[in-house]
Design a protein around this nucleic acid. Sequence first.
DNA 1: ATGAAATATGAATAATTATACGACCGGTCT
DNA 2: AGACCGGTCGTATAATTATTCATATTTCAT
Lengths: 149, 149
Amino acid sequence: MRYARQNKILEIIKSQEIDTQEKLAEILRKTGFQVTQATVSRDIKELQLIKTTSESGQSCYTLPAKMEAPLSDRFRKILKETIQSVDAAENLIVVKTLSGCANAAGEAIDTSDYPQIVGTLAGDNTLLVIVDKKENVSQVMAAFEEIIA
Amino acid sequence: MRYARQNKILEIIKSQEIDTQEKLAEILRKTGFQVTQATVSRDIKELQLIKTTSESGQSCYTLPAKMEAPLSDRFRKILKETIQSVDAAENLIVVKTLSGCANAAGEAIDTSDYPQIVGTLAGDNTLLVIVDKKENVSQVMAAFEEIIA
DNA sequence: ATGAAATATGAATAATTATACGACCGGTCT
DNA sequence: AGACCGGTCGTATAATTATTCATATTTCAT
């Protein structure tokens, strides 16, 4: 699923200076994402990454300066497309996602700043959402249901 | 001189969505700057313009988000390289520049926000700088001299 | 289940951008 | 004057990126 890969791309470009899509593709391949430059090109377009040239003259891909509006749409889309099911247990919500996408979904939720959500914990295809109070669980679940509807 | 051209480039990309360097080169040629894509590529690198993709999916060159530090260096450089002479008359300073560069120098000065400078008026190779008080003229001139030294 | 539509992707290639190289000033030094 | 240097730029081309086309896979409505 491409969201897990795109998540990885963001991770990579945040930690090192990448100046070509081919290099990005190579790193992804080493990390287990079997992918070509063509796909990386598409991912970069979708993530709206930009190629800047730093003062050192070194060019590299970075996040866009204004990432609010576009990305919040993006998060909603990620949740919509990766969440398989949502269940509650006490003050916890167990979210099942597509394989490898729990992390991406977790980041999307974290970044969306739900006040009732204390934190999230992501496995491979399971995301644990910790809610502050048992009473708020249904409210948060309703929000999720609404998104994935 | 390339600063006049780069100034034009900024003007163009601010007023319309340009998605390739070739198109930019064509517009420049129509405007009288006889130039090839190669040169535009170099200008774009120097201006640190970035190619973003707008929400409409249309990609285009734009100014970098953070343009403070790099551009102030740039302005200083423009002044240093384009100013030919500086003379005063009452509360006015007459700056001679390389042909076609008065505008670029004027913008550089305007953007630098000297408190004593009321405004500037640019011809082709002459820039008139209007200083608030006659007494401040020598101070501003000293600043210019320092830059072009 | 079954076929139609949507999605994702790779291979090949088209389109775009960056650069190596050489030419051409304009200024400077001897 | 002549040699030299630094900067600018075009041509040709290398390098990079985007897209077209074909497939495979999934989704979804019958």
